[in-house]
Write a protein that binds this DNA or RNA. Structure first.
Lengths: 207, 207
DNA sequence: GGAGTTTGTAACGCGTCGTGACAAACTACG
DNA sequence: CGTAGTTTGTCACGACGCGTTACAAACTCC
């Protein structure tokens, strides 16, 4: 029943808070008020406090919320605390950018394998991690229990890779390609579409 | 008043439809039903038809919606039809990935300039477009009337670049860095946070 | 000790969305 | 030509989520 408390809206907002909190932590802040979170997220301060107070008393009156502990609490609420292994497919410009940045690492996602097919890339390293040949994935998938796959491959091969991921037991696919992926209903596809988000922002600016 | 018809929810969903429609068009489809859009977006088919029928009768009964014309109609509704010039900052892996992909171009955003500071990158080309030195931006900004800036720079310089963009008249900043940007209230910052979106997806998978 | 800040929480009302239902328009196939 | 199947367009109802207002309690700072 506690799991049903999290409606779509609440979970979405908690994720958004998490984003701002993580950024704020990186900037060296240690405490933040609901008012400040509101300015960065656009969410009503009362709504923020209501969202949080539903799960416990995380703040200090007159002070605000401790960022580190709030991040931990939210991740507990979302039941996504701890680290999750993900696999990255495609070591082109985008793949390299993803692998060498900390965007995923900051949120508990550890890239545990990188795959590509280009002979000149396979065998090289990005940071500590070697780029492995894509053919190895099928054998590894079952063993390592990878649940999340990130697709940074060209659109024309995305569906084929997605099929392989599904066969390998991957349950969540983060799609950076522009292909429309067909997957079984128990697999979630999340497609990155910065341009659409930009159109959305542009609309409100023009209003 | 017609502009007030578009609430946050409607605009968000229209953008989402646009994403799927654009992908579907790339896959060679020419027509699509509200049922099919629903499967890819998770939005109720009735809700989709209601969203669209509020602005005109775009579909054909028994058939569905013509993808090309629906894309055009939605972009008219969002008043974001036509092409918009954007400037890209940072020509590292991420910047190159953005510049050489069609993610923005497919939605009417044309990258009109790319800036960087690294001497070995300035002067080179990505596709047709030369990488210019960042110092040139200040002079160009006023002339070209660039309203949208895409930040693909390291987090520790993101705020400084953002300040320059604001000074140059940019109104919408798409932030790929992990920095928390402070801008005047008339400027919109949209931060890309794939990891948070992934946490959100993961939560629903674990439910 | 008092002023100011911020959380936690309750109550009210509007708006949005899901649901169910159904007529009208279109296709396909005998 | 006609019938079955599909899909849009549209209405009405109900539930629920969210913004708003309000206020007590806890904490900081001077």
């Amino acid at each position: 029943m506690a799991s049903d408390r999290l409606t779509l809206g609440v979970a979405a907002r908690l994720s958004r808070y998490l984003q701002v909190l993580t950024q704020a932590r990186k900037m060296g802040k240690s405490s933040i008020s609901s008012q400040a979170i509101s300015e960065y997220t656009g969410v009503n301060p009362t709504q923020i406090r209501r969202d949080l107070s539903g799960f416990g008393k995380f703040g200090k009156r007159g002070v605000g919320y401790d960022i580190d502990s709030l991040i931990e609490q939210i991740r507990k609420i979302l039941r996504t605390a701890g680290t999750h292994n993900i696999a990255l497919f495609g070591a082109g410009n985008l793949g390299q950018a993803i692998a060498s940045s900390s965007v995923f690492g900051d949120h508990g996602f550890q890239i545990s394998a990188i795959f590509d097919v280009a002979p000149e890339r396979v065998g090289q390293r990005i940071g500590e991690l070697p780029i492995r040949h894509y053919d190895e994935f099928a054998g590894i998938a079952a063993d390592e229990g990878i649940m999340v796959g990130v697709l940074a491959v060209p659109g024309d091969v995305a569906q084929r890779v997605a099929d392989d991921l599904v066969a390998g037991g991957v349950k969540i696919i983060f799609n950076y390609s522009d292909a429309l992926l067909s997957v079984p209903s128990d697999v979630t596809v999340h497609t990155s579409s910065p341009a659409v988000e930009l159109l959305y922002a542009l609309y409100f600016y023009l209003s």
